[in-house]
Amino acid sequence: MADQHDFELATGGEEETRLLGEKLGRALRKGDVVLLSGDLGTGKTCLTQGIGRGLNCQGNVNSPSFVLMNEYDGRETLFHVDLYRIEDVEELDELGLWDYAERGVLVIEWPERGAELLPGDGLVIELRYGDMDRQRRLKFLPRGPRGEELVRSLGAA
C-alpha cells in the first residue's frame, strides 16, 4: 500500500531491543494493537518487556506462551498474548481477542503470521536474526493512520 512507511532498523542486543520497546510503550494508548512476528529467540518477549516499561507496568513481563495471556497494570493495562501454538487463522475471529484492546494495549506474539491478522489500525513488527551474533533486525509495518503515528513516534518516517 502506497501510503505506508515501512522501515527497518537493527538493535545490537537485548537491552537495545528493550529500549526500543520502551520508546514504543511510551507512545501507546488504549485501543492500540501491536503484532509481533518472528522466530523463536528473535526478541519478541524482550521487546514486550520494554513496552511494559514504557507503559509503567508493575512487575516483570515474561512469556505468556503457556498461559496464553498475561495482564499487567500500568498507565494503560497491557494485555500480552502469545499465539505460538495456534495454526488456524479461521478460528481466531470467534475468540474475542480484539475485545481486550478496548480495555488497554494489546500486544500479540504470533511467530508464523504477520500483517494478515490485524483487523484494523495498528502496528506490525517483524523480528529476525541479524548478521552478527546478538544483532536483531526489526521491520515496522504500520497499518492505518494510528500505525503511521506510532512509527513516527519512534523517530522514523
Binding site: V67, E87, D88
Partner: peptide
C-alpha cells in the same frame, strides 16, 4: 485441535 489454549473455547 486448535494447537493450544484458546480463551473463549
Amino acid at each position: 485441535r486448535y494447537g493450544g489454549v484458546v480463551p473463549e473455547v
